[in-house]
């Protein structure tokens, strides 16, 4: 058996005294796409932030292994450099730092001790990625997320993933608040992150993005636990009937 790309074992996460994730097991193999679904407040975003090592979220019990190695003692930037990437639901603005400059710096952080990308190749990579996401090239001169619309922020998150090419992309509701055309473009950007050595964890409320990015496994999260797993049909079932029957079924059990 190959070592899974990500392995989460009996994970408990608290914010202050309050436990939000209450025992999760989740294994993601290379070459797969996993969807994590669930209603608001079920702990999906907490999981994504805990995976990147947000200082507010404390792992109280359990472990997270990336490429077979525990990441609990790794700093946020070390997790990023190891190949993990989070598409933020609410990305921060960095006024005064242009998108081009930001991307150059984040890319160079990945080339420690190696020759960084040649300027011409970097420019080409940016142009291709921008075209793929149908963004206006002027975005490169704008300050990161400063005065961006919701849709522009989502595209910028995906643009970063296309430039940095992480091994594991964690997408936190990257599909929310988008119209149908924007959703299709974003979905193409997510699809571009597939690869035999890579994997995607797609966190979403709705099934609609899964019509474009077909998941191999669907997990349903409720009250800090993964309560059900299945294939694409599970997502379709949730879309048709909502989360209520599942909640009811669990309460009765």
């Amino acid at each position: 058996m190959p070592i899974p790309l990500l392995e989460i074992r009996d994970l408990h996460v608290a914010v202050g005294e309050k436990e939000i994730i209450r025992g999760i097991d989740l294994t993601i193999e290379r070459g797969t796409v996993h969807a994590l679904m669930g209603p608001n407040g079920s702990g999906k975003s907490t999981l994504s932030l805990a995976l990147m090592g947000h200082p507010k979220y404390t792992v109280t019990i359990g472990d997270m292994l990336f490429e077979g190695r525990s990441i609990l003692d790794m700093k946020t930037e070390e997790r990023s450099l190891a190949g993990m990437f989070l598409c933020f639901q609410y990305p921060s603005a960095v006024p005064g730092v242009s998108v081009a400059n930001f991307l150059r710096n984040t890319l160079m952080a990945r080339h420690k001790g190696q020759a960084p990308l040649k300027p011409a190749r970097f420019k080409q990579l940016l142009e291709e990625s921008i075209a793929k996401l149908k963004m206006d090239p002027s975005v490169l001169g704008r300050y990161v997320n400063d005065g961006f619309s919701g849709g522009e922020k989502k595209r910028l998150e995906i643009l970063q993933a296309l430039v940095l090419q992480p091994t594991l992309s964690i997408l936190d509701e990257t599909d929310s608040g988008l119209d149908i055309d924007a959703l299709r473009i974003i979905a193409q950007g997510i699809e571009a992150q597939r690869g035999p050595e890579r994997a995607i964890l797609l966190i979403t409320h709705y099934q609609r993005v899964l019509n474009y990015v077909k998941p191999d496994v669907v997990h349903v999260m409720l009250h800090g636990r993964i309560v059900k797993q299945g294939g694409f049909e599970l997502a379709q079932e949730l879309e048709a009937r909502g989360y209520d029957p599942l909640i009811k079924q669990l309460v009765e059990a």
């Binding site: 990147m52 947000h54 200082p55 700093k75 946020t76 930037e77 997790r79 990023s80 450099l81 990437f85 989070l86 933020f88 990305p91 921060s92 960095v94 930001f102 710096n105 984040t106 952080a109 990945r110 970063q160 940095l164």
Partner: peptide, 8 residues
Amino acid sequence: FYVMSRGL
């Protein structure tokens, strides 16, 4: 956190 999550 946002900037550090990009490897800085």
